[in-house]
Write a protein that binds this DNA or RNA. Structure first.
Length: 484
RNA sequence: UGCCCGAUGGUGUAGUGGUAGCACAAACGACUCUGACUCGUUUAGCCAUGGUUCGAGUCCAUGUCGGGCAACCA
């Protein structure tokens, strides 16, 4: 009809990058990064960030770094690094040679900290945490300057060295950036950039007794790696001025941060701390418990990487919080599985069916199509005999006209087999249906059924002792059914 | 009581001063050896009030509502 619309929807990040590339910023290079903290498994929300980071890099001929943001040894473990790498690979992304660790930059970061001290832009503060809180002020009140704020450069250098050498205990001694205690942005009120932590790091052991704080480590790690577009979620928006300030002070590579709204899904708990709590309290069976929103769990449920990537593309990207309908995710996986997964039959709640006019000893093999949307997927044997089981849900004694499955007197098709008609319903003493006596029509054998008008009612499945309700399956997963 | 960000059908979004589109969901119908898929139809939207303009979802002002910010977490 009209202009061909681009398959990739526009969003503000894409436009920013496209503009930068067009203007030749950074020589037209695009370097993004995904910086997980190895303190938990990746979840569906991370998938959005991963698809964005790797997606943008790929789209603009750049690269996306995977950087373990391991700056807090009390929370991080090696186990998580492996799961993170596995999940990203599974999603279909490749960081190539670009696997980094914030901890690999500790030496450089430490040097930057000294540089800051020498420039009079950082100082060692000895306020207790309670005092600190008091001095910091609040969103509505300005903060007060720490009495340690104007120590000499020499004193600061000496104290920071003592902190680094492990001569001071964890506690009051903290290296702070000297910015502005009355800034309306609380993050600029002389934020901590280094604290003493006498905890072994999972990669570096006891090498360090001081560790950089997020803002300091993250901004400079980005700069060290030459990240052109540092994409993160909205909650870091208020950190941006600090991010820029730090990079500016040490004249590092001018990485820029851009924020977008994180994913929120209906009926779904997303959030590493929440998931971690569920796992650690034993409320779920593990990080891949199918009920939770980790990528490991979705994988176990049979979700495909394609469906998740497609979902991430579908939901778009904005700067305002929203709650995405879980139906969007389900639509994505349903469409993907429908196109490429072989069907299987299974019965959850069996009800016996006896075909009265089918020979006692006879058993025949019928042909079932593995995937109607892709005949190349072949066929499978579907046994048929006098006794079968159907899903109890597929029978209704007193059925409304809209019920297309088994009900007394109505002829229906057993998928890939014959038309059958329920002649009699057998119940036990409690009045529960325990067996159906049916007849079949030999002329209606699956595949070449003559009829048309007759088979208004039809349904699925079956074999051997079992007549099954059909489900898609991939591994142990299943296709989420549309809620009715 | 401060500062920052945001606001388009039920949901997610596009629209960059010139006819408000798309997807999901829902309803109805067609098709079907999966009540699936597919196809068709329908329902339904610019937070409010002013202003600028020939013309405003878009620009401006004010208001309303929502979110974020006071870890030695990331």
């Amino acid at each position: 009809m009209s202009i061909e619309e681009s398959t990739t929807p526009k969003h503000f990040i894409r436009e920013i990058i496209a503009k930068d590339v067009a203007e030749g910023k950074h020589g037209g290079k695009v370097v993004t990064r995904f910086p997980p903290e190895p303190s938990g498994y990746l979840h569906i929300g991370h998938a959005k960030a991963i698809c964005l980071g790797f997606g943008m890099a790929k789209e603009f001929g750049g690269v996306c770094h995977l950087r373990m943001d391991d700056t807090n040894p009390v929370k991080e473990e090696a186990e998580y690094e492996e799961s993170i790498k596995e999940d990203i690979r599974w999603l279909g992304f490749d960081w190539g040679e670009n696997l980094y660790y914030a901890s690999d930059y500790f030496e450089q970061l430490h040097g930057f900290a000294i540089q800051l001290i020498e420039a009079g832009k950082a100082y060692v503060c000895q306020l207790s945490q309670e005092e600190w809180r008091d001095y910091k002020g609040s969103p509505t009140e300005p903060g007060k300057e720490s009495p340690y704020r104007n120590r000499s450069v020499e004193a600061n250098l000496d104290l920071f060295k003592k902190m680094t050498d492990g001569e001071l205990d964890e506690g009051p001694h903290v290296l702070r950036a000297k910015i502005d205690m009355v800034s309306p942005n609380l993050h600029l009120r002389d934020p901590a950039i280094y604290r003493i932590l006498k905890v072994p790091h999972h990669r570096l052991g006891n090498k360090w007794s001081v560790y950089p704080m997020y803002d300091f480590a993250h901004s400079l790690s980005d700069a060290i790696e030459g990240i052109t577009h540092s994409l993160c979620s909205l909650e870091f928006e208020v950190h941006r001025p600090l991010y820029d300030w730090i990079i500016e002070q040490v004249q590092a590579f001018p990485s820029k941060q851009y924020e977008f709204a994180r994913l929120e899904l209906g009926y779904t708990v997303i959030g590493k701390r929440n998931l971690k709590e569920l796992v650690e309290k034993g409320l779920v069976s593990g990080w891949d418990d199918p009920r939770i929103s980790t990528l490991a769990a979705f994988r176990r449920r049979g979700y495909t990487p394609e469906s998740i990537r497609n979902f991430c593309e579908t939901i778009g990207l904005t700067r305002f919080k929203s709650l995405t309908d879980i139906a969007l995710l389900e639509h994505s996986i349903r469409g993907d599985l429908n196109a490429k997964v072989s069907r299987v039959l299974g019965v959850l709640d069996p009800l016996k069916v006896v075909i009265e006019n089918y020979p006692e000893e006879k058993e025949e093999i019928l042909e079932g199509i593995n995937n109607p949307t892709n005949l190349d997927a072949g066929t499978r044997d579907v046994p048929f005999s006098r006794e079968l089981y159907v899903e109890r849900e597929d029978f209704m004694e007193d059925a409304p006209k809209k019920f297309f499955r088994l009900t007394p007197g109505r002829e229906v098709r057993l998928r890939y087999a014959y038309f059958i008609t329920c002649q009699e319903v057998i119940k036990n003493e409690q009045g529960e249906v325990v067996e159906l006596r049916c007849t079949y029509d030999p002329e209606t054998r699956g595949g070449n059924a003559p009829d048309d008008e007759r088979s208004k009612g039809r349904f699925i499945g079956f074999p051997r002792g079992m007549l099954f309700r059909q489900r898609f399956a991939s591994m142990i997963g299943y296709l989420p059914r549309k809620s009715r």
